[in-house]
Design a protein around this nucleic acid. Structure first.
Length: 271
DNA sequence: CCATATACCTGGCAGC
DNA sequence: TGCTGCCAGGTATATG
């Protein structure tokens, strides 16, 4: 589910409500991708200072450290005063004076990790190799173009890797490449500056639009208030194999790149 | 260093 | 109806 828009929508749906809360307890369900890496009791009594996002990670700042939360493929957070008893696939609760933050994650590719600081070992391992934030000024056409010049991988895989720019996953990579008229198999180094500029604009456009409509809820994504997103209703190519292109009516094609599905219009994205 | 494959885990769905 | 195989929003790690 969760690419940048879904993670950011999640953040916006509970950051204000949890800010200032006192941590009262922790409940762990089945193991997630990594262990919490501290004793549960370590978190108790800490104050929630705020919630930030870096790429697809949520950073819950605490008075003496931070929690890194990743939603993996199937994770969703809820934050409410009373969530009742945990159900199947509810694998983490952070009980606070303002309510309980609960991670529901059937596939358990998600993670909740404590780190003493952002410079801590685990935090560094997870965050230090991330590219720039696409919706901030640090995402610059010129830098993006220069970095692409040395990449011989396909542009789709470069986007998915998060090396240059973070937050673009399988849905939004396909969508951004459609909007910029670029074939997903095109090598990064083969893209001219004007085409990179178009791609840059398309990434910003598609992520911004997805944010506006609450992200994509393909199966079960919802924000921390339990509300769904609607971007899946307006995709041009993602999950539309054999359906007519919304621009030229040519049937959308699906292909495999690095074990992931890629969708594109063979007419609108010729090279 | 690079590109590609694998592993993690569960549920839903198409096809038989 | 029930079984099998494949697919799914991600990414660290292993392999060549």
């Amino acid at each position: 589910m969760p690419e940048l828009p879904e993670v950011e929508v999640t953040r916006l749906s509970f950051a204000d409500r949890i800010q200032g809360a006192l941590v009262l307890g922790v409940r762990l369900g089945k193991p997630l991708r990594w262990p919490l890496s501290c004793k549960d009791s370590r978190l108790i009594g800490q104050r929630v200072l705020g919630v930030r996002r870096r790429g697809k990670y949520l950073l819950i700042d605490l008075s003496e450290g931070l929690l890194l939360i990743h939603l993996g493929m199937s994770g969703a957070l809820r934050f409410e005063a009373d969530l009742g008893e945990p159900k199947l696939h509810d694998h983490f609760d952070l009980v606070t004076s303002h309510g309980t933050l609960r991670l529901h994650d059937p596939r358990r590719f998600g993670a909740v990790v404590f780190s003493e600081s952002e410079q801590g070992q685990m935090a560094q391992k997870l965050l230090s190799n991330l590219g720039v934030e696409p919706l901030e000024g640090s995402f610059e056409i010129d830098v993006f173009h220069k970095a692409l010049r040395s990449k011989k991988a396909s542009i789709k895989q470069i986007l998915l890797s998060g090396q240059l720019v973070v937050g673009v996953g399988n849905i939004y990579a396909s969508e951004a490449l459609f909007l910029s008229g670029i074939r997903p198999t095109t090598r990064g180094a083969a893209l001219s500056k004007p085409r990179v500029a178009k791609l840059h604009a398309s990434i910003v456009q598609v992520l911004t639009r997805a944010l506006e409509v609450g992200g994509s809820s393909l199966r079960d994504f919802s924000n921390a208030k339990g509300e769904s997103g609607y971007f899946q209703l307006e995709t041009f190519v993602y999950d539309r194999e054999k359906e007519p292109c919304r621009v030229c009516l040519t049937p959308i094609k699906m292909m495999r790149q690095g074990q992931r599905s890629t969708f594109y219009c063979p007419q609108c994205q010729k090279r």
